[in-house]
Design a protein around this nucleic acid. Structure first.
Lengths: 142, 142
DNA sequence: TCAAAATTTAGAATTATTCTAAATTGAGAT
DNA sequence: ATCTCAATTTAGAATAATTCTAAATTTTGA
């Protein structure tokens, strides 16, 4: 499993280089976490993880790296109404979100599962649609 | 028109009392602006207006009053991804929003104009849906 | 008219994020 | 290996939106 691990690192390093991000140790650790381990993390989540796996990282580096990843198209930054902190999304496909109001956890929603037909052509030319569903997880019938 | 003006003030005062908000001079001015004059204002917009019509109001009072109006169901506070500032919405009907990306102006969208059918019952119990359409105003054919 | 309660205020505190300028690290030429 | 220049990282200051605090002011109702 060490080998597997190494391979993942190598892949991420390659991805970073392809995107034009020089893979320093800090950046690599941040990218790995955000791309492979985390689920809709905030900058704070990344900080907390980094404090475990990396001697000392500054908030500046975390924010700079996240911003860089966004700029190079590796992730997207999104804000939701329930929190002031941006979350970083590794899912680059067009998708919506569901917020479990009880846990605060976000889930991706495939647009295929959502039939949406706005009749607004007369007034607005729509280029993008953000949707946040809110509620609770469905308790499966036992 | 003075009379008309007075009547509006009286109505707002009555509304405040009914909602359990004691109508002080500051609060009345804030309520009037938010309910009758403004369009999706931020706290900052309210501050700017107040500086014109009222000697001195503190940010604390503006925020307190807005929070109070929200708590008493006179308005709703909403956050959108394009700005960190909350906007206050006097439209209490269920509705969506359209953001004109060129001007930053928000428009209400009647849910009747939007056919939405998510197939998520197996996974999620949806209690609310926030939608933000983004784009530009439709240029009317000349 | 006076005390108690409510309101307002200035300014400090907080949170998420960005900026700044100095220190450190790294890469390529020698 | 070594030196230099550019890139990166850092601590901490700055910013913006909002909340908090404690003192000052206003209001209310015996």
């Amino acid at each position: 499993m060490k080998r597997f691990h190494d391979k993942k690192i190598k892949q991420i390093e390659a991805l970073m280089r392809q995107s034009g991000i020089r893979p320093t140790a800090q950046r690599l650790a941040i990218c790995r976490f955000v791309l492979c381990e985390a689920d809709h993390p905030t900058a704070d989540d990344v900080m907390a993880h980094m404090e475990k796996v990396f001697p000392i990282v500054s908030t500046a580096t975390v924010y700079n790296t996240l911003k860089m990843m966004v700029a190079h198209g590796l992730i997207r930054a999104i804000k939701f109404p329930h929190s002031d902190a941006a979350i970083y999304d590794q899912n680059l496909h067009h998708h919506y979100h569901f917020l479990d109001e009880q846990t605060g956890r976000l889930y991706d929603v495939d647009p295929k599962q959502v039939q949406l037909e706005p009749s607004l052509e007369n007034q607005f030319h729509i280029t993008d649609v953000d949707i946040l569903f809110r509620g609770r997880l469905q308790t499966p019938p036992n």
